[in-house]
């Protein structure tokens, strides 16, 4: 490609600056997880592994993690089902309200979380009297996760076109067989990419969760929030965050493996 050497170096330098911007604060998190000061003062006067050993014996964080995983997986599952069927409807049919549906699906992610949060909380508590709990968290999360699955699925369905499906049907396969053998495999990587992003969105969501979580339920972000405001507990939070960064390699690696087999890849 015809990009001058100078431009290449300039871009490389900018990439470096960008990565520094991303990674300096993250290193601060990791360093602070060893900082003996309880209030993260800088530069650390001494280092300790106390927070790591405290975090390991902390059962609250493990419980919070399991709530987060449960909420994330359920919300992702709902988003996958609803997002995919909506994408099918929009890509394959014409109907009244098509434009509005495609706007409506974007709305939950484009309106501020605090608005979605108080709207849902108000609806659950005052209007329909639904007890808040894991279910209400899942409803909240699924609502804004639908769009990412929908967009990934829609893009793939549009690229796929309908010719493969028609060929399959012409050859005598029925709708279900065609879906199972033709459509779904072609759609799979897009769905996984969308699902992974949906899971990620749900996993770090705090605002909507604050307003929709029921008694006894602490997702990981809520646990972190509560612990930052609890004397003596704040340093453990850095340990949890540092661990999350390291563990996040797994889903990222997975998403990359999955996007390899598709031409333009999942979005993320």
């Amino acid at each position: 490609m015809t990009i001058s050497k100078r431009a290449r170096y300039a871009l490389m330098a900018l990439m470096g600056v960008g990565l520094a911007f991303i990674y300096v604060p993250l290193s601060v998190v990791v360093i602070n997880s060893f900082n003996s000061s309880r209030t993260f003062s800088w530069p650390p006067s001494s280092f300790t592994t106390e927070w790591w050993s405290k975090a390991i014996s902390n059962t609250g964080v493990r419980k919070a993690l399991s709530w987060s995983l449960a909420a994330g997986f359920s919300a992702t599952l709902i988003a996958l089902l609803l997002g995919t069927s909506l994408a099918f409807a929009v890509s394959r049919y014409n109907f009244f309200g098509k434009d509005i549906i495609s706007l409506l699906v974007v709305l939950p992610i484009s309106l501020p979380g605090v608005v979605t949060g108080i709207a849902l909380s108000n609806a659950f508590n005052q209007e329909i009297g639904l007890s808040t709990g894991l279910l209400t968290i899942v409803i909240g999360h699924a609502t804004f996760c639908i769009v990412v699955v929908y967009n990934n699925a829609l893009a793939r369905l549009r690229r796929m076109g309908t010719s493969l499906q028609e060929a399959s049907m012409d050859l005598g396969a029925n709708g279900i067989t065609t879906f199972r053998l033709i459509t779904l495999p072609n759609l799979a990587s897009a769905l996984l990419a969308g699902g992974l992003l949906a899971f990620g969105l749900s996993f770090d969501e705090i605002v909507v969760t604050t307003f929709t979580a029921g008694p006894g339920i602490e997702t990981l972000p809520i646990w972190i929030y509560n612990n930052l405001f609890r004397p003596n507990q704040a340093p453990i939070v850095n340990v949890v965050a540092a661990t999350l960064v390291v563990v996040s390699v797994i889903p990222i690696y997975l998403s990359q493996r999955l996007s390899q087999d598709s031409t333009s890849g999942g979005r993320f």
Partner: peptide
């Protein structure tokens, strides 16, 4: 209930002696 620090726990005794399981929601 000891989940944050095993030494800090005044819930488990209560749960054992009364049979009432404690579900807590933190108000900020």
């Amino acid at each position: 209930n000891g989940s944050n620090d095993p030494k800090v726990n005044w819930v488990s005794d209560f749960e054992k002696s009364t049979g009432c399981k404690v579900n807590v929601k933190i108000g900020s």
